[in-house]
Design a protein around this nucleic acid. Structure first.
Lengths: 166, 166
DNA sequence: ATTGCTGCAAACGATTTGCATGAGG
DNA sequence: CCTCATGCAAATCGTTTGCAGCAAT
């Protein structure tokens, strides 16, 4: 129900897309005087072929499949870099973990999260984009991004018994 | 333009409003079999006369002015209770701290946060409410709430020099 | 009395940093 | 070479929990 996903549009991002993302990343690195390393490359590539919202932990896990030796810290720091150059963005469901998703080729989608089971649905809502711009203009902000999440109880969980007070 | 009302209803919440909020809180306590205590009362009252978005820490600080002996943990737990009965709601700016704001008499407002200086602006956008409902219906969720935040750089910070890499 | 509450201190867990070693330009 | 990157371990920091004594019903 919550993982409509990724039949094949996602499993393999086109080579040009990957190339382009690497381009963006590399020039960002250059711009701020950082180095291009094998680890950063591996992390970016791993990240690009994911979907949904990964915690640093989860991405680290995936990255290790590609290269056993890469440490958590490096993934952590690289994710920050990716966020800086716009390839990744943080999504915070309210569960104490910071997640990232890749922003590359993905526009204006948002999440609705079930507060019972934690599953989530993606939806698109272009109006939100307009609202961001409009509010920004009104208050003289240069807006860079926004977050929009809906919380509720999914169809499945509605039929289960409610819980109370852990 | 973004603050339709509340000229003076905020500096000092009316007695009836406070009363009403206490009503809500107390009946929530009763409903779930919890007790009414002096601390909880003090915390609610302190909370009600705040504005903006307080971390547990900050509220604890304020509460201590009213009653020195109240501990952090109690504030923390009470805040959860307030959130449960709808008097408070969490707002998560992406800075690692959970903040709460009181929901009492406050409808459908959102925040735009400056990523440079951390200041924030409130705005109202009733469309968002509609979108929540609509998306919920579409995916068969019973929606309970949403979060919407815009991030950007405020007027002031735009004129300052950009910073890099802490 | 009984059950929940409080505050302290300790546990927790995600995130962040210091540092010695290794690699990129 | 010199600077930055890496990975580990340790530090941090907000949050959460266990518990012994206290208070509300």
């Amino acid at each position: 129900m919550t993982l409509p996903k990724r039949v094949d549009d996602q499993a393999e991002l086109s080579h040009e897309s990957v190339r382009e993302a690497e381009e963006i990343f590399n020039s960002h690195l250059k711009r701020v005087g950082l180095k291009h390393t094998a680890q950063r490359d591996a992390i970016l590539r791993t990240f690009l072929v994911t979907r949904d919202h990964l915690s640093t932990e989860e991405l680290h896990h995936l990255v290790k499949r590609r290269d056993e030796g890469i440490g958590f810290t490096t993934v952590y720091r690289t994710l920050k870099l990716l966020a800086e150059c716009g390839l990744a963005s943080e999504v915070a469901f309210h569960d104490g973990v910071t997640r990232y998703e890749h922003q590359y080729n993905r526009r204006s989608h948002h999440h609705m999260v079930c507060t019972e089971c934690g599953s989530s649905v993606e939806f698109f809502s272009p109006e939100i984009e307009k609202i961001e711009k409009e509010i920004g203009r009104k208050h003289r902000y240069v807006t860079t991004r926004h977050t929009f999440q809906i919380y509720g109880v999914c169809d499945q969980c509605q039929t289960k018994k409610p819980k109370r007070r852990k």
